[in-house]
């Protein structure tokens, strides 16, 4: 039996109103297992804002503060300040935003909090589009994807914004990618983020959306795992914006991941090749940084 599961239902109540197989729910379950009950979530507009319970309900056994769409990070900063002023430095304050609330409308607020080094964990559960409003493109939507605002032949021709690099450029104390299909790695990273108090921590969570992606609900985990196994979503950590550690990359071709999803099914072999080349290049860049980190660490150890 998994060690992490000491309580039966963890910190959530059943009966949430998420779609069957919703990856955001899985992400919340994993995260709360690692974060524990002394946690406050700040949730901007997004699917999870609804999934977590419409009035008068809540799906969580930790407090939630719903915020407007653009401002989850700074709202969390405010909560942190309020708690600190009352002497509560123990409770972890987490902003829990979708990709829209992170990459797009929430980016300014996130950047502000990260630059100030506010003592919060910012989590982006990334389902690669505005799902709550019915699958519109965001700047996290990957190349090749169809959404309701990149329909038909107008499928998205630009690549996904690299939010991890943006956060690294802020030199946040800890940034990590996590995937719902890798619960141990996922929970380790959340536990680590929880412990790294006093600074901004950022976790980019890959959370599949069967509804928006055109995959069977039962494949929510399978598809998420494929994202990492094809290196589309490698698992890695960045400390202080400079030190990279790779936890999991992939060995499968991107086609294994793309061709099984409705949102990509129009892609021709040339398109797949293009995505493959891009993924390879991104992976090589990460590997370069990992190697540079190792060289640097060895140098300082020997010095």
């Amino acid at each position: 039996m998994s060690q992490a599961l000491n309580t039966d239902r963890g910190l959530t109540y059943p009966g949430n109103v998420g779609c069957p197989g919703c990856g955001a729910n899985i992400a919340v379950n994993h995260a709360l297992r690692a974060l524990g009950e002394k946690t406050i979530l700040v949730i901007p507009a997004c699917c999870y804002a609804i999934v977590s319970g419409p009035y008068p309900q809540t799906a969580l056994k930790v407090p939630i503060l719903h915020s407007a769409f653009a401002c989850s990070a700074v709202t969390a900063s405010g909560v942190r300040a309020g708690l600190d002023m009352q002497g509560d430095t123990e409770t972890t304050v987490v902003a829990w935003a979708g990709d829209g609330g992170t990459f797009d409308i929430g980016l300014q607020s996130l950047s502000g909090a990260a630059e100030r080094g506010d003592d919060i964990i910012f989590v982006c559960y990334d389902n690669e589009a505005y799902m709550n409003t019915g699958v519109q493109r965001s700047s996290s939507t990957p190349y090749g994807s169809r959404t309701t605002t990149t329909p038909g032949q107008g499928w998205k021709k630009t690549r996904k914004k690299n939010i991890m690099e943006i956060m690294a450029a802020h030199r946040v104390a800890y940034a990590a990618t996590a995937n719902i299909a890798y619960p141990d790695d996922f929970m380790r990273k959340f536990a680590r983020a929880r412990e790294a108090r006093g600074a901004t921590r950022f976790i980019h969570v890959f959370a599949s959306c069967p509804t928006g992606w055109g995959v069977a609900s039962g494949h929510a985990i399978k598809i998420a795992r494929l994202a990492t196994r094809t290196s589309v979503f490698p698992l890695y950590e960045i400390e202080n914006g400079t030190d990279y550690t790779l936890n999991a990359g992939g060995d499968l071709p991107v086609g294994d991941y793309l061709t099984v999803q409705g949102r990509f099914k129009h892609l021709a072999p040339e398109d797949l090749a293009l995505v493959q080349a891009e993924v390879d290049r991104d992976m090589a860049l990460i590997q370069e940084k990992v190697a540079a980190t190792q060289v640097r660490r060895a140098f300082f150890k020997s010095a």
């Binding site: 059943p14 069957p20 008068p56």
Partner: peptide
């Protein structure tokens, strides 16, 4: 005002 006073347990989502 909007504040929870019950849980989602009331939603028998098994019916879906």
């Amino acid at each position: 005002f909007p504040v929870s006073h019950t849980t989602t347990e009331a939603n028998r989502t098994g019916a879906w």
